[in-house]
């Protein structure tokens, strides 16, 4: 079983390998063909619109929209759970949908509440 499933995935690995095979030679070829002039250190500075960079490029930087991120962490998983139910919907009994609807209801309520609160608190 495991081997069978594994063999199903092997073409994806092939494709990955082919992507690498397409990428590496072109980079190597580009490296061979292109000019390399290193006399000017300013050329290799990070982009700062023509100015000398101020501060670090990688910094502690926070966007305001973290409430969405927190909700995403929860609801993305739930959305994937729905697939497990959805794929077997036709083979399970009809009553099994009721708890699912209840689950969706809770999910919706929670999401609505979260959106409402974060909207009210002005997190973004």
């Amino acid at each position: 079983m495991v081997g069978e499933l594994g063999s199903q995935f092997t073409p994806i690995l092939y494709a990955l390998g082919i992507g690498v095979l397409a990428g590496v030679p072109s980079l190597v070829l580009s490296r061979l063909l292109s000019p390399r002039k290193r006399y000017n250190p300013v050329k290799f500075l990070p982009m700062e619109c023509g100015q000398v960079p101020v501060g670090e490029g990688r910094s502690h930087f926070m966007m305001q929209y973290y409430a969405y991120i927190l909700m995403f962490v929860v609801f993305d998983v739930i959305a994937i759970f729905l697939y497990a139910w959805g794929s077997s919907l036709l083979s399970i009994s009809r009553e099994a949908t009721l708890p699912m609807i209840a689950f969706l209801g809770i999910m919706f309520a929670a999401m609505g509440y979260a959106l409402y609160l974060s909207g009210r608190k002005g997190i973004w």
Partner: peptide
């Protein structure tokens, strides 16, 4: 590029013509 290539392996183009026919 490799990731994009991996995604293409999953697309069925014609009956039976898919690189990786995953469940």
């Amino acid at each position: 590029v490799a990731t994009a290539a991996a995604a293409t392996a999953l697309i069925p183009v014609a009956p039976g013509w898919v690189a990786s026919d995953l469940d």
